[in-house]
Design a protein around this nucleic acid. Structure first.
Lengths: 217, 217
DNA sequence: CAGCATCCGCTTTGATACTG
DNA sequence: CAGTATCAAAGCGGATGCTG
């Protein structure tokens, strides 16, 4: 990216991370840790492969990303964030909070990845009854299930199916209405009407909701 | 900007504010309040006027900026942030914190505006002796002086010359070494050697410094 | 298959000139 | 003051090809 040539810290940041795709690449590396080129491409649907290669080179040159050769059994190149790159997390999180209201608009045709949803859930939702018995929810949306567990008033997520014990609640359907349920913008019957199945105690959903202080602030 | 078409709050944010120049326009409106077109152009050196017009239209369409006609005595169009637009402040601030280390690199040829510097100072510097008598510093760099006052352990800034009482310390010179002094990366003699004049008690500078928790975090 | 590089058409940006 | 108009240059997207 061409420099803005301004002696302003904001402009200097944007000189480095203001290019199209750059912050999304950082997102993938933050959320998934060290990644192969192919993993990155999978997490960045629509990126032109030459652009991904270009961006990775620039990020390496700027000291945000390091490339390491995995040892023989794996024998592939891994890309990982440096410490400086990982320090972008507050930037990503402030953008996620600001962007959350946009998740309820029309999104037909949008690509979905479960780790993006899990990230937003951890950042924005809380358990309003931290002293009640912990509960587990399983979301079946996106390319793999997401398990939600209440812990200390927060929600922790894990990708993959719920374990032996199963989940107290299972919600399956399209990403937007599933998120709508969690955000309290849809009721269970409303969501059911557009194809979302909800199994388990509906009261559990009452516990979960957006942290008012967290959304867009 | 073409949408990323990802169901991810980060991507949705970048769909709206990820275009070149957009966040810098928001910066100007955050820092200066309602602005005329010409004021914006002055705060965005290098922007093409058609781009500024385009971006303002998009920002208006997205509900981040509102345009208002000032009444007869002024008789001009003013652009101001809506509440939604103003909520981008945490995004701007996280980017400023991350970008601060880049302010010490070479910047010959960079445009400078005093309000950018004042903003960074308020965000990043603290008074390490909040219980001592308050002090006033005047910076003469950029296109207008900046007055710094210690207050409750923080620094508050004001643009324009120091008032009647004058300042306890006056620092004049190029922006980078002046910031270097405040950030504790240069000593007074070092800065003097590259053309920075410092008048007043050098011990006062000891009080001022970066909040370790604030820079790039 | 993983990790690119090249080519080409399209869109965005930058610089400048001009206007109500 | 607050923009439009124009055009060249740079950046991006999509397809394809190459190399270990």
């Amino acid at each position: 990216m061409r420099s803005y040539d301004e002696y302003c810290a904001l402009a200097k940041s944007l000189d480095v991370v203001g290019d199209r795709w750059t912050l999304l690449i950082v997102r993938e590396l933050e959320l998934r840790g060290a990644c192969r080129y192919t993993d990155l491409r999978n997490g960045l649907p629509g990126i032109a492969t030459n652009l991904l290669a270009d961006r990775l080179r620039e990020l390496e040159r700027e000291g945000l990303v390091a490339r390491e050769e995995a040892p023989p059994p794996i024998a592939t190149t891994l890309f990982r964030l440096t410490e400086r790159g990982a320090e972008l997390r507050p930037v990503l999180e402030s953008l996620v909070r600001w962007g959350m209201p946009l998740m309820t608009e029309d999104n037909t045709g949008d690509a979905v990845r479960s780790h993006w949803l899990a990230w937003a859930i951890e950042l924005l939702l809380i358990d309003r009854r931290p002293d009640a018995a912990p509960v587990t929810l399983e979301l079946r949306t996106g390319e793999q299930p997401i398990v939600l567990e209440t812990r200390d008033g927060k929600l922790v997520t894990r990708l993959g199916p719920a374990g032996e014990a199963g989940a107290d609640v299972t919600i399956a359907g399209e990403p937007r209405p599933v998120m709508g349920l969690l955000l309290g913008m849809l009721t269970v019957p409303e969501a059911a009407a557009i194809g979302v199945s909800y199994t388990g105690d509906p009261a559990i959903l009452e516990r979960i909701g957006p942290d008012a202080a967290m959304v867009s602030a």
